[in-house]
Write a protein that binds this DNA or RNA. Sequence first.
DNA 1: CGAATAGTTGAGGACTATCAAAAGTGGTGG
DNA 2: CCACCACTTTTGATAGTCCTCAACTATTCG
Lengths: 283, 283
Amino acid sequence: MNFSDTLERMIRKFERRAPLDDSDRAALRSLPFTRRTASARSFIVREGSSPDVSCLLLSGYTFRQKLTGDGGRQIVSFHLPGDFMDLEGSLLSCADHNIQALTRVDYAAVPVRHILDLIDNHPRLARAMWIDTLVDASIYREWVLNVGRRNARERIGHLLCEFALRLDLAGLGTTHGYQCPMNQEQIADCTGLTPIHVNRTLKAMEAEGLIRRHLRFIEIPDWKHLREASGFDDTYLHLRQVGEPVVNHHVSRTRGSQTGANNNSVSAQTSASARSGERPGPA
Amino acid sequence: MNFSDTLERMIRKFERRAPLDDSDRAALRSLPFTRRTASARSFIVREGSSPDVSCLLLSGYTFRQKLTGDGGRQIVSFHLPGDFMDLEGSLLSCADHNIQALTRVDYAAVPVRHILDLIDNHPRLARAMWIDTLVDASIYREWVLNVGRRNARERIGHLLCEFALRLDLAGLGTTHGYQCPMNQEQIADCTGLTPIHVNRTLKAMEAEGLIRRHLRFIEIPDWKHLREASGFDDTYLHLRQVGEPVVNHHVSRTRGSQTGANNNSVSAQTSASARSGERPGPA
DNA sequence: CGAATAGTTGAGGACTATCAAAAGTGGTGG
DNA sequence: CCACCACTTTTGATAGTCCTCAACTATTCG
């Protein structure tokens, strides 16, 4: 995989987060790094360690996972080419999770001290990176919701939707279809299910016409249908993040009762919905 | 609640994240704000909005939640006094979740533009805040694991352990006991369970001697016992984060097979554990 | 005291896990 | 080109955790 193409893609990604200038871009382009390869399943960062490099993914896929004491594995996020995996490794003193290669991967390992220099000397860049980690946090929140409050079909459908959009953005697929980066066991570890149940649910979704499958290729005949069946709403990916925050007037949610202004203010609440905690009843 | 006491507590919290100097502390102390109150259950930030203030919690508890299309509610995190809730509201253009008061709360609302000024003019402070959001992200990862791969008893026990440590740190409880900030329905929404099952599980845990309850007060007769029964390991809270990252030699995990160095490097893998993805078998 | 919120209990059912094994896929070497 | 091996996907049968519905009790607060 071409390093500078991927670097440029990453720069464009950061520019969607915050405005950069020429010196910021130049600093990114001149980052020292060593090129590394890892085979599928090998560990790139281990829980408990303090890595001395942060890694820009060049080709292939990686994921982050945590284990329970009795061996249950939960995948908590995944990364595609152009992602800076493990930026937090430069700022936190101890890794709280493992990063593992999903496929054979190429990546550029950048010494932590150069990342720290970058942060110190390029505030705009630091802000773009910070925002990037905030978007990651938003994705974690959605995953908590996904495994916590959705059934198997919705969980898997939601994951397939996220794959579609993120692969599309990286030029590796479309919302009509893509080569799924994960096998069924890994999908199970993303969704908190067993591989057997993932298999059955995928088959059921195919029977319903939500998806079609050709080996590992996922085809989505009706994007809107899959989205709605999965409760998928892409807001949490913050795809249209545009640098500076803007004034408050795009409330484009389909769901929910956006009653206009926030009720940040003092005032005791009396409306029924407020008293019930605004949890809408079952549909 | 005393504003300046809470502010000082927040400053100390940031100083655990990154070193600050006098001008940083002075800048925090001179932040302009408006004092606000919100009653239990009222919304402080609404999904889809772009708040123009960020909020420092002074007294009471708040939580973040997301809803599924059919009304399921998932709490994704909670906040105690001294926390800057919704720092990301200053950097992301659209809120992806709701922030709601758990109890009656007092908070200080700081206009976003002053937060942005702070970030621009106080790089050390910006880094401390960034690290704080990275710790939040780490907590989300643990919550994904919690709802994805643990049973009801472990999920609830894990949450009770997290309460204990965080309340302890805030001076609002100890690992021997504390006033639980949440009722059983809210615990259910944190753990992806129903309130009925939470009730039964709490009773079972009490029968086992893992906890004792006096109304909303949780007593923990044997901290180690509860921790182990819940698979709780506080690494993910990054309590001992010490500013600058340190060199790599504290591998103090009890669990897991830390085989020393990372295998970041090239090399095809051949060992059995690597091929199996290093997922330990059931205990 | 009465209304509202929170906690408790029971019975039955649904979703998902577990155990076991067969069939399909892909790569390797003779 | 085929046999062989590892891995992945698929299928069946059974069990269990957790949910749903419904009602009852305890606690809080005006």
